[in-house]
């Protein structure tokens, strides 16, 4: 059964070219304007965007590279196939496209008629910032990414991540508890 499926899948991937880029020939670079460019197969793309196909399950694999017009140039099967230098430029670009600050404390949670208002403390470089956010549809917008990781999506479209519920302090956990399940 399993082999049959992989066989079928591989015939499909033969029939349809996913267009993986050759990790050896990929050459990302920083542009003077502050963006990431790409030299590949004789082409020079002045600004590329990296997008994760499976941001939750496979954040480091299946990365789509798109040009200025958002047209896909190709996909990178795994970032680990890149050289160290290429890897770090690619990671920097991904980090600036996917912004989900890590929450280290939940200061308050107030429920008002279908909206949940939260004060979240995010920590970056040792400095703590308090973020006010409002969450609608708690069922959908406060959800577990895996066993222990929690994501909060607010009404503006910001996303916050709690890396480990187990490691969160007792008080914060107690405030969040009613909305977890």
């Amino acid at each position: 059964m399993e082999t049959a499926r992989t066989a079928a899948a591989s015939t499909l991937s033969y029939a349809i070219d996913i267009g993986f880029l050759d990790p050896k020939k990929v050459e990302f670079y920083k542009t003077p304007g502050g963006f990431t460019g790409l030299r590949y197969a004789g082409n020079d793309y002045k600004r590329v965007t990296l997008r994760r196909a499976l941001p939750i399950k496979h954040p480091m694999e299946y990365i789509s590279v798109a040009d200025q017009e958002n047209k896909e140039i190709g996909m990178i099967r795994s970032l680990y196939e890149l050289s160290e230098k290429q890897f770090s430029i690619a990671m920097a670009e991904l980090d600036s496209r996917y912004y989900s600050p890590v929450v280290c404390e939940v200061k308050s949670v107030k429920d008002k008629l279908g909206y949940v208002y939260m004060e979240l403390v995010i920590e970056r470089d040792g400095a703590r910032h308090v973020k006010n956010c409002a969450v609608k549809d708690v069922n959908k917008n406060i959800r577990m990414l895996d066993e222990d990781r929690l994501a909060i999506f607010d009404v503006d479209g910001n996303r916050y991540v709690i890396q480990s519920l187990n490691k969160l302090d007792k008080k914060s956990l107690k405030r969040l508890e009613p909305y977890l399940f």
Partner: peptide, 21 residues
């Protein structure tokens, strides 16, 4: 404006075709 995921940026496209963040 170029929207990202959870964030965005403003980019200036200059007359010579280059872009600045």
């Amino acid at each position: 404006v170029i929207p990202g995921v959870g964030c965005g940026l403003i980019c200036a496209r200059l007359n010579d075709g280059s872009e600045v963040l």
